[in-house]
Nucleic acid binder design. Structure first.
Lengths: 247, 247
DNA sequence: AAAAAAATTGTAGTTTTTACAAAAAGTCCC
DNA sequence: GGGACTTTTTGTAAAAACTACAATTTTTTT
């Protein structure tokens, strides 16, 4: 389905908006695209699917699809992700909308990008609907992607770096009980910079929502680390007071 | 034009996406809504129009309209703003997309919000196309707005506070040559908090892209202030090095 | 010439950041 | 059982940044 030829530029440039029947506007679609960042042991990956349908059949792509007419945007992101990868319970947030005219070969489609961060090993994506395969691709070497997904990915990664600190996205990546070294590694991997151990730890000590437990690591060939847990309620209290956690 | 009844929930919940003809998806529209913040002498306002067309005829609303099928999203924001308020050369940036199912009475329309910050006195909005009036409304007491524009406005103001510091939006509000007191007032107004004069000034002195000129204020009934100018190139250099300016 | 207003500079105390060093607590291996 | 080893954890001293004021300067107004 190509963009209706009835709407010619010339006609619109006559500067008479009322000459365009309203129906002509209701010939577009929108989609959502999900950028699921997967973290595991100092590696950051992105979940891609291999498309089993046109356009861009067989290309690697972000899990994304058209939004149903009766569907809220945020709900749609969840549904689409589930349709294509069988994943549920992944908290995503909207980051940016991409609206170049020719970004979709079938017609006018703008797409809304959503991101999430998860622990790779916690979830088990399975291709479904028209997804042939799902695969975690390292953020460093990406295959050629369908549509403008490369641009969406780049923008999303930039957004992830901004958001990771203020929003507890990292809480999805950590196990129930974690060490500060693990915690630090997440930031180092995503922000692509290193922190001094001692100083990082001092900063953490000021954050009351990271609670030190009376337990320590087992089965390590070195001094075991204390375990910590994240208290979401306390974090929320902090945030409601206008507090913003940052590096 | 209501949402096509042919697409029933039941049908989709049969879980067979292929049973929905693709044409059914291409019955939506999208719009842009512009949140133009106007600053002048410690007052922050928002540019509203009075709608001269249905739906929401005569309501106050953000300048916004449907995007043409051949039109880039970012271009559309500019065009729509110009159509309704005669303004051009207003640099806007996208902030969020609103996609509740029933947010528009004529059908499925999602809208992309754009914001800008300008000096009130620098521009002269004039109602055109279907805009009956344009008016600057104080951010503090807003009239009832059309659609979900109240929500869009709230989200946009939150975004403005975040962005004002990192992006030189404020450069649009300042005259060519300005005093540090004027500069400080912008932040105090938008962020709704006050800063110590001396300390604010010290912070500024560290910013090489704010250049002190060999001129001072004229015609003031007190000690005249030195004038400064903003150097966009230097600012860009700063930013490219990863520097982020914040309070 | 003094008063008023606001700009500008200074300063001392506090807190935060930074870079680095030292100590501690386990395992491993002989 | 005692170093060697690894990583955690604590400490520390210097530098930088922040904070709350106070004092000084420069101009106009009375």
């Amino acid at each position: 389905m190509a963009i209706s030829k009835k709407i010619s530029k010339t006609r619109i440039e006559q500067d008479d908006i009322y000459s365009i029947p309203i129906d002509e506007f209701f010939k577009s679609a929108f989609s959502v695209d999900c950028v699921i960042f997967g973290y595991h042991e100092r590696e950051l990956k992105v979940l891609l699917i291999q498309r089993g349908t046109d356009p861009f059949q067989d290309y690697w792509a972000l899990p994304g699809d058209l939004v149903y007419p009766y569907e809220d945007l945020d709900d749609s992101a969840k549904r689409v992700l589930n349709d294509l990868t069988s994943l549920s319970d992944v908290a995503m947030r909207q980051v940016h909308t991409f609206g170049k005219v020719n970004r979709h070969p079938l017609g006018r489609v703008i797409t809304v990008g959503y991101i999430a961060l998860v622990e790779l090993m916690d979830i088990n994506p399975l291709p479904s609907k028209w997804a042939k395969q799902t695969k975690w691709h390292s953020i460093k070497r990406m295959p050629k992607l369908a549509f403008d997904h490369k641009e969406i990915l780049n923008e999303s990664y930039r957004a992830l770096k901004d958001i990771i600190v203020a929003e507890p996205l990292w809480s999805k990546v950590l196990p129930e009980k974690f060490t500060l070294t693990e915690f630090q590694a997440i930031f180092e991997t995503i922000l692509q910079r290193e922190f001094d151990k001692g100083n990082f730890r001092k900063k953490i000590n000021g954050l009351k929502f990271l609670i030190r437990l009376d337990e320590s690591q087992q089965n390590v060939r070195h001094r075991p680390s204390s375990l910590y847990r994240f208290d979401a309620k306390l974090f929320k209290q902090y945030r409601d007071k206008g507090f913003v956690f940052e590096f």
